[in-house]
Amino acid sequence: MFQNSIKVSKLSKQFGRNYALKEINLELKSGELLAILGRNGAGKTTFLKILSTLLKQTEGEILFNGVLLSDFPQTEIKRKIGLISHNLFLYSGLSALENLTFFAKLYDLENPTVKINEVLEKVGLIHRKNELVRNYSRGMQQRLGIARAFLHNPEILLLDEPYTGLDQNGTEILNNLLKMFNSQEKITILVTHNIEQGLTLSDKVTIFENGKVAFIEQSKNLNLEEMRKVYKEFVS
């Protein structure tokens, strides 16, 4: 199986005079899930936005499989990335099926109908696929947003607080999808405020503080109690 890797070196992002990120160094390999913890404004979302090509870094570089992200044709790198964020990227005036069909065609997917039905089945919305998104509950919209991110089978999955609005069932669905995704030797980066969830799901856990990596460790070397102590120590 093809091995993916991401290497982030001395990544900085400035907004005016303020540094949102300063000299971030990270490395991830196939099958790894990195959980990013940190307080609001620590730079977590900015980091994901840079990785997803929505923002450009001020300094530093990102290598994907050894190649600079900026050297990839933009449309090619975008096919490799899936993003789930606070924004669901869904048109409320379109049905679930119409939304996914629109994005499937943008990604030039082959057999879009099969893939759409597959992801809708996985998120439990197949029977309501013809309903307008505006009539969905927040949790259902979130599940559809998850389906949209998985639709094109990305190599890298970026999740920014993906559990917001999800009920127990939705949380289980997302956890199962993440497990399946990781078993396919893909890379996942999860931004969360939930220490327990972050530690349980991840292979590596990091804490961002003031735009810097304040702490990084293999999740297997930490238990929840230790992690909570570390979090308090750095985020105080």
């Binding site: 090509t53 929505l54 933009q74 449309t75 048109y91």
Partner: peptide, 14 residues
């Protein structure tokens, strides 16, 4: 609405 423009920008569309 729902950040759809960002959704377009992260899609392989110029």
């Amino acid at each position: 609405e729902n950040g759809c423009l960002q959704g377009l920008r992260i899609s392989p569309v110029e």
